[in-house]
Design a protein around this nucleic acid. Structure first.
Lengths: 241, 241
DNA sequence: TGTACATCAGTGAACGCGCGTTCACTGATGTAC
DNA sequence: TGTACATCAGTGAACGCGCGTTCACTGATGTAC
């Protein structure tokens, strides 16, 4: 416990307070967005709830936009982590079990975190401009796992491309050709199309459920989602149960 | 042109000005939402642009919320009309042509009117509470046409329920049983499920396109949409071209 | 045709509110010797 | 251990702004006879 030994821990206690504070700010921001909508986020309201004056927030985020960016980054990361954890938690060797775990994790996360979901997939916040160099790579994360799963399942012969998807149209095909060249990857175009299609299907169901357009039509949205996902997986040639 | 004859036209010119004004207010509101987001709607900003003071707006809408409700009603109606018009414009006798016309009209309207689409299917506006007795029936309109088409095509044998959709799960089935009893309708449960599934598919694609999550994956979203819709129709047993 | 009256869209001031951001500052805490 | 100093989270006042809504009013227009 000499002076020298203390040096590396210089400011440590303060920094922990700072992290605490930065986290608290985000937590309160999230709660307030849940009440006021994503566009209702306000530094002053956050400060009020933290029992602190508004300028104090500037010690942790240089502008309101930086706070929003941090919230978006957290949301993409949390969604991706939830999906990955769901896949990793599957002990079965069959790809289909991992695929279904991932798509169910997507819905579950959206239902449990509707505001974060709106933040990343809903209306943009007026006046906020996303720094794409930061958000774009994060936006890709959630679906990388599913993409790899599709590839693996296809190679193993567990996934078969349905005949209605075989004829990939020309512009999409040439876009994918370019993309594959740039990323030095090989796979059937239709496989990427199936990923896009699958994403749209889960996204559409979740969106309609979150905006209360689904319940009136089919009643039990959770059960319907399972049914719909099973139908999708079955059509891809996966053997269910 | 006696005094008596003029009586029925009493105030007519004024009323026309009023209608003009109410329409102008909505038009400007829509344009401003396009620039500021749906949450950025503001009576004062609209008044400013109309070269009028803010209280003048109150002669046409009693509250800001009433204006928003009017915009939402217009949006649902316009979407439903666009879809119906697309179906009516098809001369072919085959149901599939009408189905494809409707689903393409959905996307086309959303792309051409992204703000109105956000207004009805995106994040709610902070503080605004929709009067459900007004909006709920309007929200159903867009898909009534497609529903009837599905029914008709099924009865004609043009639409066949794919085997992955045959086993409708229990809660959904009992919900639909109740719904059919209340509305005195008869149809296979799976047909309603296919409508829900189809809606989610087009909605998901359109949503991901509008939020710029689709282009990076498949390039040409319009072409992909056609491909995806054809795949869906084909899977329903419809003969394409 | 002329005159008194009614209508009512729009005004301008005011209400009380909230917002993001800047600035010079304070005062508790930790550091160095 | 004691003292002088540095750090820096948080303050409080101010800036200039915009908001929805109310109110008593004005003044152009149309109506009635």
């Amino acid at each position: 416990m000499t002076t020298r030994n203390r040096k590396p821990t210089k400011h440590q206690p303060r920094r922990m307070v700072e992290q605490d504070m930065a986290t608290q700010i985000k937590t309160i921001a999230r709660r307030q967005m849940a009440e006021q909508g994503t566009a209702g986020i306000s530094l002053r309201a956050i400060a009020r709830e933290l029992d602190v004056t508004a300028p104090a927030i500037y010690n942790y985020y240089r502008r309101l936009d930086d706070l929003i960016t941090a919230l978006i980054a957290d949301a993409f990361t949390a969604l991706a982590d939830a999906m990955q954890a769901a896949a990793d938690g599957v002990t079965s060797k069959k790809s289909v079990d991992r695929v279904l775990a991932i798509v169910h994790a997507y819905r579950a996360w959206a239902i449990q975190n509707p505001i974060d979901f709106q933040l990343i997939y809903g209306n943009p916040i007026p006046g906020y401009v996303a720094p794409f160099e930061i958000t774009a790579p994060l936006a890709r994360r959630p679906f990388l796992g599913l993409f790899q799963l599709f590839l693996q399942a296809y190679e193993r012969g567990e996934l078969v491309i349905p005949n209605e998807y075989v004829n990939v149209p020309p512009h999409v095909a040439s876009f994918l050709a370019e993309w594959k060249r740039a990323n030095q990857m090989q796979m059937p175009d239709a496989l990427v199309c199936l990923l896009m299609s699958g994403w749209a299907r889960i996204h559409g169901m979740v969106m309609l459920e979150l905006t209360h357009h689904a319940t009136g039509l089919i009643g039990d949205t959770a059960e319907f989602y399972t049914y719909e996902m099973n139908a999708f997986a079955q059509r891809l040639g996966f053997k269910i149960k």
